[in-house]
């Protein structure tokens, strides 16, 4: 059975990153078409990720793709192009219920076109706004494709205009609510990434805090963080 302790986020427009990422053995490898890719490269990143999934040996990791939101104007094309290479899931930024319902329809059409069984690709909503945090219970029930969710504290901090700290006291309520709601729904919960990739002691403390709040795993922005995450989330 696949484990869900870590998700490593890699920009989708970097061949070097796409090739090196499996070396770190993350449980989930997130090929990012959203935040990690500048606007002018959205089209080429989408094609690179499609070709990489078909070419690379990603056997020991579960490949997921973080698409752009539908509101951005890029999300629908991301689904259309990536679906045929069948990632295990799409990560959905600003994963509110309305958008997830629209994506459900688009994805079902794309799966049919690609000859895939309906429902074969999962959805992982990113909770990064106050509204989605408060609507989480209903959000997780929008689609049977949802088996995991990802809490992005950086997005929430931006919306609230709060300054993030390594200790994370400012996101304690949000983290607790997120983790408990996922637990109640029987879903995997990925905690926000620890953004100082050179502070391993800080990362370990942050992992412990997240685990004690009920999270089942954590995101990483650097492959070197994976071993520490796996040490805490067993």
């Amino acid at each position: 059975m696949s484990q869900n302790r870590s998700m490593l986020i890699i920009p989708g427009n970097s061949p070097k990153g796409l090739q090196n990422a499996p070396v770190f053995n993350p449980d989930l490898l997130v090929l990012d078409l959203a935040d990690g890719v500048p606007l002018e490269d959205k089209d080429s990143a989408r094609l690179l990720v499609k070709e990489a999934i078909g070419f690379m040996d990603y056997e020991n990791t579960q490949v997921v793709v973080r698409i752009n939101s539908l509101q951005s104007g890029f999300g629908a094309k991301d689904i259309e192009i990536i679906t045929p290479v069948q990632p295990i899931a799409f990560v959905i930024p600003q994963g509110n219920a309305e958008q997830l319902q629209e994506i459900e329809i688009l994805l079902a059409e794309s799966e049919k076109k690609a000859g895939l069984k309906e429902g074969s690709i999962g959805l992982i909503p990113v909770v990064e706004t106050v509204k989605t945090l408060e609507q989480m219970s209903s959000l997780l029930n929008v689609s049977p494709r949802i088996k995991s969710a990802f809490f992005n504290a950086e997005g929430l901090a931006q919306e609230l205009g709060i300054v993030r700290s390594k200790e994370g006291d400012e996101i304690l309520y949000a983290r607790s609510k997120f983790a408990m709601t996922c637990r109640a729904a029987g879903m995997n919960s990925f905690d926000t990434a620890f953004t100082d990739s050179n502070d391993y002691e800080g990362l370990e403390k942050d992992c412990l805090k997240a685990r004690n709040l009920g999270f089942t795993g954590k995101a990483a922005i650097d492959g070197r963080q994976i071993d520490t995450i796996h040490k805490i989330f067993v």
Partner: peptide, 16 residues
């Protein structure tokens, strides 16, 4: 670059 990168970059340039 590996083969997949050639394929992706050629497709992107042609589309543009």
């Amino acid at each position: 670059a590996l083969d997949y990168t050639f394929r992706a970059r050629v497709q992107a340039a042609l589309q543009r």
